[in-house]
């Protein structure tokens, strides 16, 4: 089994004339936290969408556990073990927290249409087990006694947590979090940083993080990749990235480097 969980080979995406990602080579090792940073419009979310099958790359390949996943539909990625959250929260707003998590379990459950109508013993057992597991996941994600709350009625922080719980329900090997701390207060952000570490240590997951909050990035990442204008401009451990001139230039402009 290859050491790299996820690998992209010169991945490129064009929207009409605009090149959103240009030949990005990128890897996520097993059981690691990798962060993807870059100024607004650098192509981070586009890159994410290619890693989950939402966008089809113009060029290049995506490998997951050595298997070529390029051009596969999103559900195939989820099936193989890629879970994700969205930058602008996309919960099933009118389902309860528990139902949201149950939807996340879709690929791990088997009951089909006919078994559902007959409610065979196997489906019944499966449903009961799924509910137990969903409650555990909610608890793990910090949503205690929120099972029956409708998605839209949860607080902002809880909605973010529920999105993670829902993604965890797909039993991912790699979890992609798109700006998970956006809109969180400093305390929630700190809690979240611990939570990401727990994901790695307790669930043995790899986490790929798009993040703007540098304290989070520097706190949890094993490695940081920087995108600017769709190109990878730097990669390395957090300390090195902090000192990288091209990164400082991308964020603060050329004048900042000279100063």
């Amino acid at each position: 089994m290859p050491d790299e969980l996820l690998q992209t080979l010169s991945l490129r995406k064009e929207f009409g004339g605009l090149v959103a990602n240009n030949n990005v080579d990128f890897t996520v090792p097993r059981n690691a936290v990798v962060s993807l940073i870059g100024p607004n419009g650098a192509g981070k979310t586009t890159f994410f969408n290619m890693l989950t099958g939402v966008y089809k790359p113009t060029n290049g390949r995506v490998l997951f556990e050595g298997e070529d996943m390029t051009n596969k539909p999103p559900h195939a990625y989820t099936q193989r073990g890629v879970g994700r959250t969205f930058q602008n929260i996309r919960l099933f707003q009118n389902m309860t927290a528990l139902e949201n998590v149950l939807v996340g379990m879709h690929v791990r459950l088997k009951g089909n249409l006919f078994e559902a109508i007959a409610r065979t013993p196997r489906v019944r057992r499966e449903e009961v087990a799924a509910r137990v597991r969903a409650r555990e996941l909610l608890e793990f994600s910090g949503l205690v006694r929120k099972d029956g709350v409708i998605g839209r009625n949860l607080s902002y922080g809880d909605q973010r947590r529920l999105e993670v719980a829902r993604a965890l329900a797909t039993q991912p090997k790699l979890l992609l979090l798109d700006e998970p701390t956006a809109g969180m207060n400093p305390q929630e952000t700190a809690e979240f940083t611990t939570f990401v570490s727990r994901l790695r240590e307790e669930l043995k997951l790899s986490v790929l993080l798009i993040e703007h909050d540098m304290r989070v990035v520097m706190g949890v990442s094993d490695r940081v990749t920087v995108l600017d204008y769709g190109e990878k401009i730097a990669e390395g451990p957090p300390e090195a990235i902090q000192k990288d001139e091209r990164v400082i230039e991308a964020y603060l402009g050329a004048a900042a480097v000279k100063a």
């Binding site: 999103p74 989820t78 099933f92 389902m95 996340g104 009951g111 409610r119």
Partner: peptide, 22 residues
């Protein structure tokens, strides 16, 4: 059932439903 939840999930948000493996 699992199928019914998937239907409702698609009704609510197709993209999110696809990302959940439906």
């Amino acid at each position: 059932s699992r199928v019914g939840r998937a239907w409702i999930a698609i009704r609510e948000d197709e993209t999110a439903a696809a990302a959940m493996g439906i």
